[in-house]
């Protein structure tokens, strides 16, 4: 079976400092992988390299494209990579403001990706937008409101709808629940878990919140100082951490 994403020896340096170093892993279709680690451990650098926002210094990121099978996204041409990032990939930013167009209505935000891949029928775009707003629990009558009129949680749900409307196969999420209060977080996680299962999405979730990965991720990668220190099934890593840093991370969580 071909993996959906095959990462080999990926490194990114910022001058002398290490962003992330020698990372390799396979991600299979339908799998959700969590990347955890403290601030500055290189997890966002890694995610941005995978999603094509940063160019890695060494290594390959092979994605199983629909037409040509595994292709290295680092060396493919920019138009091809940008095409992937608006069809088969999705990127959910921590701050909805980075991922949404704040001066465009909710419907326009959801419809943008459809229009970017060539949809030119207003009625159909509108219908898809309405459908997706419903799926992320945003009331249909808010379709013409701008995201500025939405709460933080709603903005985040809108960002998810905007990303998933083209039926991507791989979703990158950078701290999707950061900055939300706990009850809103819980609802968002519930929603994400439902969507991931229902659509059979693969996802890579970067977070420092262990509860998020416990709920969403099948597999876990623990990073420290740009290196992967431990990988394994989520429950295995969280319940029986082997590396000293993983143990510290797990024991740092406050038990209520």
């Amino acid at each position: 079976m071909t993996p959906l994403l095959k990462v080999e020896g990926l490194s990114k340096f910022y001058g002398q400092r290490i962003g992330c170093s020698n990372i390799s892993f396979d991600l299979y279709a339908g799998e959700v992988m969590g990347i955890v680690g403290e601030s500055g451990s290189g997890k966002s650098t890694l995610l941005n390299c995978l999603a094509g926002h940063l160019t890695p210094d060494t290594g390959a990121v092979r994605f199983d494209t629909r037409t040509d099978g595994l292709r290295d996204t680092v060396t493919m041409s920019e138009p091809e990579r940008r095409m992937l990032s608006r069809t088969d990939w999705a990127f959910v930013h921590q701050h909805p403001r980075d991922g949404l167009r704040m001066n465009v209505s909710a419907g326009g935000n959801v419809g943008e990706r459809l229009m970017a891949v060539g949809s030119r029928h207003y009625g159909q775009i509108r219908e898809a937008a309405t459908d997706w707003l419903g799926r992320v629990e945003i009331n249909e009558d808010r379709i013409d409101d701008r995201p500025t009129a939405f709460s933080g949680g709603m903005q985040q749900r809108l960002q998810i709808a905007r990303n998933l409307v083209t039926g991507p196969r791989l979703v990158f999420m950078d701290e999707p629940t950061g900055g939300l209060d706990v009850s809103v977080q819980a609802r968002l996680l519930d929603l994400l878990r439902g969507l991931v299962r229902e659509m059979g999405l693969s996802a890579i979730i970067v977070t420092h919140d262990l509860a998020v990965v416990r709920l969403l991720a099948d597999r876990l990668m623990v990073m420290k100082d740009g290196h992967v220190v431990e990988t394994g099934l989520t429950d295995q890593v969280l319940d029986d951490p082997q590396h000293a840093y993983s143990q510290l991370l797990v024991s740092s969580v406050l038990q209520v």
Binding site: V104, G108, I125
Partner: peptide
């Protein structure tokens, strides 16, 4: 695609 977002709006 963005140009059509304006018309959509």
């Amino acid at each position: 695609g963005l140009m059509h977002v304006k018309l959509y709006e």
